[in-house]
Design a protein around this nucleic acid. Structure first.
Lengths: 234, 234
DNA sequence: CGACAGATTGACGAAAGTCAATTACGGTGG
DNA sequence: CCACCGTAATTGACTTTCGTCAATCTGTCG
């Protein structure tokens, strides 16, 4: 880990809680890895031996049942943290969806480092609390929403989280590529690919969205989409 | 907060990370509250002003849609921690299901205290990571399981988490009271009360469980129940 | 002994899943 | 640059599961 100081996520990842000396020390125990789409970094149930920072790319967290049913339980982007520090067993798979760069640490190294750096643990705690809130909101989507509501929320969520490289705006984009195929959308929303396809076509027919290519979405009528996405009670 | 040293959760709540002096200092900023069933401690969307430890009782975390659909996103037991420290807005309601005792702290007091006590933050981080893992497993249940599978998992989960006062065994109980009505079971599992009732009766007809009273469950055939609860792939 | 909320049961409908066939996209090689 | 191929996505017909609505039952508590 030679160039932490020039790392693109230096100021956004948990590293941002550390001063130059701390980052340097952390860098010494980290290793840079490249992942290709479909490559799995952590397997569910294995003794958790690595944690990591995402530098570039998109990865999914997933769990599955023995008959093959799969649920995606999280999607991570650059600057996000991966893995379960402090000795517990990995509870889900971590798999690259795109080409990805990650900065890995052995669990034991990271645990030791974290315990010596309260500022890092604080940052990680804050992130984990936010991720927990986000995941709990997802429970509402999976447990209580219809297919159309799920998709509307998904598209709005994507438009807020996807920022194509080179574009610095913070505002939600009306036109973007999603890093998921239909099966993955289905696995995120707890649906089948057929239902995803049908509801997406409903939106297309109503001119709420356009789908110029398989992976591109254009939101033509954001108000209508927000309307379909059942508003949480707050 | 006079008697932290005699608190029943002193050695299980996050307080267990503190020495006598620390607990004493924390006790000074905490206030003891009694809650009655149905009483709400925190409302979703309000500016988060309190966090708390559960001393006794069971509480639910829930979110709802404007049309009344509700999803329970968490259930907390004695020694569990409630709330979102470090300034974010409350994302869900916290409501007592039984008579309950909690030990509350103003967010700002707690935040300040936590930042001065890395051991406390570490403990909280470890718990939050575990809770995140648990919540993510719930996503699989809501997104990919049938009503029967959901109920089987729910019953097994309950049998492991419920320990009636006075009983010190760690083994799962085959006979226990659940602190939920049918509507709440439905809100946990993303079902309707009718479906809960029907599937429960299926289990009864198969002699897998008995339901001597509304709130009591007796597991007659744990193996069959585990069999229905689709096994995660690990 | 009622009365009421909570739970069960039944009949029906709607939403999403399943299975199968077809189409379209996107990458490859001629 | 175009034709071809394989994968992914769409579409259609049908089934299943769960939800909805309404009636009935039951146990809890005054």
């Amino acid at each position: 880990m030679d160039h932490c100081s020039s790392c693109v996520v230096r100021n956004r990842a948990i590293c941002s809680s550390l001063d130059a000396g701390g980052v340097n020390a952390l860098g010494k125990i980290g290793r840079h890895h490249r992942l290709v789409p479909g490559q799995t970094l952590i397997w569910e149930g294995e003794d958790s031996t690595v944690v990591a920072n995402v530098i570039d790319g998109v990865l999914k967290l997933s769990t599955s049942l023995s008959d093959g049913r799969e649920q995606i339980v999280g999607v991570v982007y650059p600057s996000d943290f991966i893995g379960r520090p402090f000795g517990a067993r990995a509870q889900h798979n971590v798999t690259a969806l795109t080409d990805a760069h990650v900065c890995t640490f052995s669990s034991s190294d990271f645990d030791r480092f974290a315990r010596e750096h309260p500022e890092l643990e604080h940052k990680l705690l804050d992130r984990t609390l936010s991720e927990l809130d986000r995941t709990r909101r997802w429970l509402l989507l999976l447990g209580r929403m219809t297919a159309s509501e799920k998709l509307a929320n998904f598209l709005l969520d994507m438009s807020e989280r996807i920022a194509p490289s080179g574009c610095k705006t913070e505002a939600p984009l009306d036109s973007f590529d999603i890093p998921f195929g239909r099966q993955q959308i289905a696995d995120i929303l707890g649906l089948t690919i057929e239902t995803v396809s049908r509801r997406l076509n409903d939106f297309k027919a109503q001119k709420i969205i356009a789908v110029p290519t398989r992976r591109r979405i254009e939101i033509l009528n954001r108000a209508a989409l927000s309307d379909i996405a059942a508003t949480p009670n707050r």
